[in-house]
């Protein structure tokens, strides 16, 4: 149990997927202008990453490794993720229309979020068991959602304060803010 707890803290903060492992930066830079959309995007990513991570793990163990075709991992995983996202979209539309209205527009964007794919590959690379895969995928995605949310809040304030120098407005100041945020997250290093 303690082992999983450590894994959650490590994946969420110490080795934060966005700030330390550099994955999923595009949405952090692009989508974070409002807290509402950051919340929607974050929830959709947690859902899809957990599903994709576990599905890819099962496929790796039951198909790729059994047949000895691990070199097709990249090709297979990305197709699995693309299909999964489509499937989730259709299912959500039928089963939970309110949820679909809230998260639907973010779903197509997630296929090319390098985090989903990256977490799936990391699970295999670090030889996680099925439970570890489940925990790691979810914790990493929550770490992503936290950064997205923090960043959206910071940006809303920075925009309304209007003190950012003209030449750093937009993407540059977002990146510098991310660097500062990364520094404070790095302060937790050593906890594991």
């Amino acid at each position: 149990m303690q082992e999983y707890l450590l894994m959650i803290v490590a994946a969420m903060f110490i080795n934060n997927i966005v700030l330390i492992r550099f994955m999923g930066n595009c949405p952090v830079v692009g989508v974070t202008s409002s807290v509402d959309s950051a919340l929607g995007m974050g929830a959709a990513v947690v859902f899809v990453t957990t599903m994709a991570g576990t599905t890819c793990w099962i496929i790796q163990k039951t198909i790729l490794e059994v047949l000895g075709i691990e070199y097709l991992q990249t090709l297979v995983f990305i197709l699995v993720i693309a299909t999964l996202v489509q499937f989730v979209e259709i299912l959500m539309q039928k089963v939970a229309p309110p949820l679909y209205r809230a998260l639907g527009i973010f779903l197509p964007l997630i296929t090319t979020n390098c985090m989903v794919f990256g977490v799936s590959v990391l699970n295999i690379k670090e030889e996680h068991s099925f439970m570890e895969t489940l925990v790691f995928s979810m914790a990493s995605a929550v770490g992503f959602a936290i950064v997205l949310l923090f960043m959206a809040g910071l940006r809303e304030r920075m925009d309304s304060a209007g003190r950012v120098p003209k030449l750093l407005q937009g993407v540059p100041i977002t990146l510098i803010t991310a660097g500062m945020m990364g520094l404070s997250f790095a302060g937790l290093m050593g906890l594991d």
């Binding site: 977002t174 510098i176 660097g179």
Partner: peptide
């Protein structure tokens, strides 16, 4: 890693 973000922004 944080240095990468700051340099990129600058």
């Amino acid at each position: 890693p944080p240095g990468a973000f700051v340099i990129f922004g600058l």
